[in-house]
């Protein structure tokens, strides 16, 4: 559709509609062409994903709304949303989806796109930094728990050095560098 000129004067209605011509129509294809996006357009907006989500009640945009936003081309809103990062990746939405839309995986795709554009929340960068420095996200500290269960104090075979070396060569390192 051709872009129309902004009408002069006050708006005709007070609903403040989203101007469709300003949305990114390519965004849908962009996600669609990514590894998990094949079934994206099969979505028939039943909202099963949102019903399945254990934490969407605190989300501004619910999972089915994010899918809808992708389909409409609301690229900036989706990629700068907190929700794609808040996702627990429990895969309940994807499991229940009657049209086999890979909802959780599509959010991973969105995270990757957002990361490429440097749109990563600070706490996520913090986690990446932790991973780079320690080679693990959760350090085993509560030794008494292991003792209670009759396990040896140290996690056997745990070697974080190799992982640290690998991570230095990955995008995780670049993200931390650029994020700082």
């Amino acid at each position: 559709m051709a872009e129309t000129k902004e009408p002069a004067g006050p708006p005709v209605t007070l609903t403040e509609p989203i101007e469709m011509s300003k949305l990114d129509v390519k965004f849908r294809e962009e996600i669609h062409s990514m590894p998990n996006g094949e079934e994206l357009s099969a979505c028939f907006a039943c909202s099963t994903c949102t019903a399945a989500c254990p934490i969407a009640n605190i989300w501004k945009y619910k999972p089915h709304q994010l899918i809808r936003m992708i389909l409409l081309g609301m690229r900036d809103e989706v990629l700068s949303s907190d929700e794609i990062w808040l996702c627990l990746t429990c895969f309940q939405c994807q499991e229940r989806c009657p049209q086999k839309v890979r909802v959780t995986d599509i959010f991973f795709d969105c995270k990757n796109l957002a990361a490429e554009e440097g749109k990563i929340p600070a706490n996520i960068i913090g986690l990446a930094k932790e991973l780079l420095e320690k080679g693990q996200l959760y350090t085993v500290t509560a030794d008494w728990e292991r003792e209670d269960m009759g396990l040896e104090p140290e996690v056997p075979g745990l070697s974080v050095d190799a992982l640290k070396n690998i991570l230095k060569e990955t995008r995780t390192n670049k993200i931390v560098d650029s994020g700082e």
Binding site: A42, F44, C46, P98, Q99, K100
Partner: peptide, 9 residues
């Protein structure tokens, strides 16, 4: 509604 119908699974 739609229990097992309209469902690719």
């Amino acid at each position: 509604q739609c229990v097992g119908s309209r469902d690719e699974n």
